[in-house]
Design a protein around this nucleic acid. Sequence first.
DNA 1: AATGAATGAGCTTTCATTCAT
DNA 2: GATGAATGAAAGCTCATTCAT
Lengths: 217, 217, 217, 217
Amino acid sequence: MTDETDPQSDSKPSRRDPEGHRQALITATLDLVAERGVPDTTVSRIIERAGLSRGMIHLHFKCKEGLLIAAARHFSESYATEVETQLVEAGSSPAEIIVAAVRADLSERVLNPRTARLWHGFRGITNPDPEIAACCGTRGGLVKETIEAAFLNLATTEGQSNPERLARDATFGTMALLEGMCADYLANMQTFSRSDAERVILRFITGLFPRHFSPKA
Amino acid sequence: MTDETDPQSDSKPSRRDPEGHRQALITATLDLVAERGVPDTTVSRIIERAGLSRGMIHLHFKCKEGLLIAAARHFSESYATEVETQLVEAGSSPAEIIVAAVRADLSERVLNPRTARLWHGFRGITNPDPEIAACCGTRGGLVKETIEAAFLNLATTEGQSNPERLARDATFGTMALLEGMCADYLANMQTFSRSDAERVILRFITGLFPRHFSPKA
Amino acid sequence: MTDETDPQSDSKPSRRDPEGHRQALITATLDLVAERGVPDTTVSRIIERAGLSRGMIHLHFKCKEGLLIAAARHFSESYATEVETQLVEAGSSPAEIIVAAVRADLSERVLNPRTARLWHGFRGITNPDPEIAACCGTRGGLVKETIEAAFLNLATTEGQSNPERLARDATFGTMALLEGMCADYLANMQTFSRSDAERVILRFITGLFPRHFSPKA
Amino acid sequence: MTDETDPQSDSKPSRRDPEGHRQALITATLDLVAERGVPDTTVSRIIERAGLSRGMIHLHFKCKEGLLIAAARHFSESYATEVETQLVEAGSSPAEIIVAAVRADLSERVLNPRTARLWHGFRGITNPDPEIAACCGTRGGLVKETIEAAFLNLATTEGQSNPERLARDATFGTMALLEGMCADYLANMQTFSRSDAERVILRFITGLFPRHFSPKA
DNA sequence: AATGAATGAGCTTTCATTCAT
DNA sequence: GATGAATGAAAGCTCATTCAT
């Protein structure tokens, strides 16, 4: 998943390796944001964890804010990549895509303590850089587009009067439910049930598309 | 909501008014958390905004953390109070209660830039005081109980095989949707539509209780 | 040893008892200086321990410094009183008085963790109030005068050429040794030996007055 | 004693000179402890006197306590070094070494207002860091060992029944006297007489080793 | 490209003292 | 005489950033 080109695997990067240094700083930053939150992710802790020198951050990212933006973008892209990867292994019908997307979003690899803390950590910044707000403000981007396209496909097939609106509502609700599940997971990690979450979301979808999903999918 | 007994109206509290000072500090803190986030809510800014002296915070709340906890609790209680207030004006049937609760939660008084930022600001603290986590980790408490009771009422009436589970799913989904709407509102304040949000949530509820809600409630 | 007039023994003084309040504050101050040193003896800790109100200190002693002076003086007087008390039980010959004074000064009641810390605590104030310097700068006062008188008695009897100087040297040396022993006690409480200390001081005295003290006194 | 390699003499150290900065901070700290005592030796005063920036203390010593420990150790080492230096110029017989050590300890360079205040300032910390207690709790270390070895040499030569105990008593008494003299010096700088102090200490030593010291050494 | 010593603004907290009650 | 809420200066410390090397 990480640097294939780095001959020394993923430990401390070698002395002259600008790209390795960038990656090491981003990884250290994400680790810290997940563990301690954005405000406690200090320059000192980042460089200590990355095993690099103090000036490195300003050399590669201009300032701490720049590193934070790069880290948030990296995290957001990892999320989309991971969901898309899981979708590839699923079927290709719209209904299969939607169910697979929901399952992927609730899977251990996408929803875990680290990611739940990262989403909320970045979202907790009240006046975030627009860049951070754009990529971590809500789940969205590629995943949302994929789901919306599948819903539109279903709605059109069904011959509804206003398929665009149905698809939009379905997407809006599904994404909101996933957001809400993530918040619930963060607050109640011990008792949170992935299967309960999945069942509730499918009940919502089934309510909108009764022909395409069985009540007990 | 402010000092009825204070002869000098509700502006700056008089020199000897412990309770007024406590309230002033909590209000200033909530204002700042909403405007600038938790980490930028410094003691200096709080006392400047409250127009009080530096030592006051430690006198009344022992430390800044204590004030933050008191503020979070106050905010959480205000939320519940506001929703309950709006429920009083609604009908008394389970379905009416549920619809009213959703509408209240999406109303201007409950969901606005200040509250959306406060929820996420407090939630963004990665290792929060348990007290803060308990009251701001997710919408819950009184509102959730009210909704769950109403759903259970409907589910039992309907003669479902497992009414408890249906009520639990309905509550879980509704709360998750409200959470997700709040996150969406925070991320897209300009384009967010309260009516779209309400319609989507009612579609979810209608899917689970088709007899009690009309498709276009 | 304390307030004979207080009907409620030595616990918290009653509501209207100025003298009891003075004593309670002094005792609390000495306890704290012994336990935590002068700099950590704060007004808050003093009033908490004495169970009195904040304004009390400034009411009875004008300021914290005034209380500290009163406490130092009280401690110094307690030291002299205790030594004199032990001397009363001793013999009345000059040699007996001297040996008894040394023993008293090294006794558990006079040299213990509390007193060793109090002497050094007050002495550690670099620019002390002259009053504190006078009473806690070095052991002195009454005890020193008693010893010097006894030495002078011995020296005169012995018919030395310069009895005043001999007495002065003996007193100077004995007091210095007692000071040194106190410092050693503070630094090495576990290993300090009162009998070793006494033997060494008596060796010093025996060296100056071989006729009046046996080598193995 | 100062930077031989620094081309800009020994005034303010150059912008990049870690070791010089360390020394400057230690010197400033000792000056202040001597002038105002440990509690009034604040970070602000230290950096003002050293002409360095605020963060420097925490950069080189981690915290104020760390600087204080380093300063105490430096002071303790300076004391031992100074006494040893003066001993080199003295004779090499045990008796000469002892007399020289006493004289050195009472000399202007070893016993002066600054050092007397430093000993008592550091000793006045009631719950000192073990490191500070170890090096400033009592005169000791190298000087004590040197004196004890010399006394043991004398005691063995003299053929006493228990030479170790005699040497121990002599060392204990001499060190205690030197401690006591230092306390007396601190309390009575104007009237303190180095020659009186020396005479009294030699009287003690002469009493224990009459063959090796003349009564009026 | 890379380093890490240095900076000083700004952080939370503690403190002796005041004074309306 | 007695109280304790209120004050604000000053404490120790952390921080992102700079820049000589």
